[in-house]
């Protein structure tokens, strides 16, 4: 009501009482947030890399995700945004079955990576995670050398038989992650000795060393300073040429900068998924609008 009072001051030079009234009505009108029952926008694409339909996630009896359906296209960067606890991270973790580690977590629905059913009981998660890599919120290099960090994935999957091959994988991965020039002289120094941004790029290098098809990123920049963040964002754009990327972020500007399409989650539901430009200039759903413009809380 405070704002209404401010508006009561008549605008100079206009005596149009009706107009003032209109302004007041606008300003004080409270927005009812209608419950999202169907996703608006363009959640589906032709020939998707990942095809996810009616995904539901339960923690014991609590349903965390309600019937989310969306596609992730080839070489597309999709960002998932939404307020805390909206289920975006939970959803992301379904995509390489990281939720398997939580006993009480149950996933329903149809999730496909191309023709492969992710939750096929015959599918080995180890194989899946080699195809769908993940980068985490906090940079988490192993307390080993930079070289060993990157070489770990190829080693456990037996991707390189000779030392020479492994060296090559390490170098190309670090190059792709834009870290090679900075660390090439100290490959055997501990990875934990790098700066936060470098550590995160090391984690990205480690992830792409196993040549995944999809890279999932769970708030990859939330622990980094703006310059390191900018470097990672730059990297994401470059990586999208060869990988499909799904990124969860709390920074709307980041979603706006890096992604092709943006999905807005609210209370475990996918409210809207649209081209990023549309979401940030003219979102279709009121809830998206309210979140994008910071009208929550």
């Amino acid at each position: 009501m405070e704002t209404a009072q401010q508006l009561d001051k008549p605008a100079l030079g206009t005596n149009d009482a009706a107009r003032d009234k209109a302004i007041n009505e606008q300003a004080t009108m409270t927005q009812d947030t209608p419950y999202p029952d169907q996703t608006v926008g363009k959640p589906f694409v032709d020939d998707p890399k990942m095809r996810l339909r009616d995904v539901e996630v339960f923690y014991d009896d609590n349903q965390a995700i309600h019937g989310v359906s969306l596609d992730i296209g080839k070489n597309e960067v999709v960002s998932l945004i939404g307020p805390s606890g909206c289920g975006k991270s939970t959803f992301l973790r379904c995509l390489n079955r990281m939720n398997d580690t939580i006993d009480i977590c149950k996933v329903k629905g149809s999730l496909h990576l191309e023709s492969q059913d992710l939750y096929d009981p015959k599918l080995d998660v180890v194989e899946l995670r080699a195809r769908v890599g993940m980068v985490f919120q906090k940079p988490n290099p192993f307390p080993k050398s930079i070289y060993d960090n990157v070489a770990y994935g190829p080693r456990i999957h037996g991707l390189a038989n000779k030392k020479y091959d492994l060296d090559e994988i390490v170098e190309t991965s670090l190059r792709k992650a834009g870290l090679w020039e900075e660390v090439k002289d100290r490959l055997h120094a501990p990875g934990t000795g790098l700066s936060g941004g470098q550590q995160q790029r090391l984690c990205i290098a480690r992830t792409i060393a196993v040549s995944p098809e999809v890279v999932l990123m769970d708030e990859p920049c939330s622990a980094l300073d703006p310059i390191a963040t900018a470097k990672i964002e730059e990297l994401i754009s470059e990586l999208s040429e060869s990988y499909t990327i799904a990124i969860v972020t709390h920074s709307m500007q980041q979603a706006a900068r890096v992604s092709h399409r943006t999905a807005y989650f609210h209370l475990g539901r996918l409210v809207e998924m649209n081209d990023t430009e549309t979401v940030f200039t003219k979102p279709e759903h009121d809830l998206t609008e309210a979140y994008i413009t910071g009208r929550f809380g």
Binding site: V125, F136, I156
Partner: peptide
């Protein structure tokens, strides 16, 4: 042992046994 290390290894496709033995 920080869970982030475990997650990192699992995210790379390490099996439970490998996570325990290597990390």
């Amino acid at each position: 042992v920080p869970p982030s290390i475990r997650q990192a290894a699992m995210g790379l496709g390490a099996s439970k046994m490998q996570v325990v033995l290597h990390h």
